[in-house]
């Protein structure tokens, strides 16, 4: 049996509450469209949807500050979008167009944005963790106020990179917020089929790292937990591990027949869907009417449509540029 749907008062002013809802809807509608575009052959390669998990990115990223670092995985459209990458640019990258954030070199799994300090979607499971710890080390050595938020899935906890990084981050008291999106599956492998210890917080605790476990289907719970967590990390108390218990409603990627779980299970989890439960709470509190919801949804759909138009109108990186940027051009960066 799964927990009942998230409920209870929403402790936010109307504007902020709506911001959270809007961002969740933006992710949902953008990804629904992406799936459709995948079917139409416009988006290719691997496409990992975040549908069902929207409360995590939205609640968590709204608790961070603009100058914080963000490191994430291949399932990162949501993080990029909430962090402030324009939907147009994300869509163009998924199309492989040069108007994309990475000139079409990375696609869906590899969104990078220097402006918002998004250090990329890393498609090697747990590959982002050491990099995040290194960013945090740089901040600690330079005595900045910044923290690094590092997102990864439950599958990552089985990797050596996870354990090595947890140890080092705790040993050196680095300002990293380890954000584990526990959606219960790594591709088709359920957590209990891959871990002797399924309590992920216990793993972090074994490195003497403080932990928080929270309902990743409830944007309020996510936001509150992350606010507390980021403040603690920012205060210089060292790293913190936060587990968001969530669920993906769609297949792992576009190549997944979902043989490993039942439709009933997915349906049951949908009763805890982050968007409809949150909008119901807002309606109940009089912070949102059905008309307002529909208007908001229409706005979001218009944004998605505009992003698709932008990506369609985008251009292909000329072949002559193919070898550019393998190395930094002379005199660049540093």
């Amino acid at each position: 049996m799964i927990a009942p749907p998230p409920s209870g008062p929403v402790p936010y002013a109307r504007d902020f509450a709506r911001q959270l809802l809007t961002d969740m809807l933006r992710i949902r509608r953008m990804e629904e469209k992406s799936a459709e575009l995948y079917g139409a052959g416009k988006i290719r390669g691997f496409l990992h949807l975040y549908i069902g998990e929207e409360a995590v990115a939205v609640g968590a990223l709204h608790a961070l500050q603009a100058e914080d670092n963000l490191v994430t995985t291949y399932r990162e459209h949501a993080h990029a979008l909430v962090r402030g990458m324009p939907m147009d640019v994300i869509m163009a990258e998924m199309y492989g167009k040069r108007e994309g954030c990475s000139l079409g070199r990375g696609g869906s799994m590899h969104l990078f944005d220097k402006r918002t300090r998004l250090f990329g979607g890393n498609a090697i499971v747990a590959g982002g963790l050491p990099v995040a710890a290194g960013l945090a080390l740089a901040d600690k050595m330079q005595k900045t106020d910044r923290i690094t938020a590092c997102f990864f899935g439950d599958g990552a906890v089985a990797e050596g990179a996870f354990h090595e990084t947890m140890n080092l981050a705790a040993l050196w008291q680095l300002p990293v917020l380890f954000c584990c999106e526990n959606n219960r599956y790594a591709m088709g492998t359920a957590l209990e089929r891959s871990e002797s210890q399924t309590d992920l917080c216990a793993k972090a605790a074994s490195y003497k790292m403080p932990t928080i476990k929270t309902d990743g289907m409830d944007v309020v719970a996510v936001h509150e937990a992350t606010r507390e967590a980021q403040a603690q990390v920012r205060s210089g108390a060292g790293p913190l591990f936060i587990e968001y218990q969530t669920y993906r409603f769609r297949a792992h990627s576009m190549f997944d027949a979902e043989l490993y779980r039942s439709k009933a299970e997915v349906e049951e989890w949908k009763t805890r869907g982050p968007i409809h439960t949150f909008s119901a709470r807002l309606k109940q509190e009089g912070k949102l009417s059905e008309e307002e919801f529909l208007a908001l949804d229409a706005e979001v759909n218009a944004e998605v449509a505009a992003a698709v138009t932008f990506a369609e109108a985008g251009t292909w990186e000329p072949l002559e540029h193919m070898l550019a940027d393998v190395y930094t051009p002379a005199g660049g960066q540093l």
């Binding site: 050491p130 710890a133 290194g134 080390l137 330079q142 090595e164 140890n167 080092l168």
Partner: peptide
């Protein structure tokens, strides 16, 4: 601070070098 002994964690400390370089240091 500048001569840092690490645990036996090649994957992590090499990756941390990458992160520190991205973060403005010269590891």
């Amino acid at each position: 601070e500048r001569i840092r002994d690490t645990p036996l964690s090649e994957l992590a400390f090499v990756g941390m070098g990458i992160g520190a370089a991205l973060g403005g240091m010269r590891p």
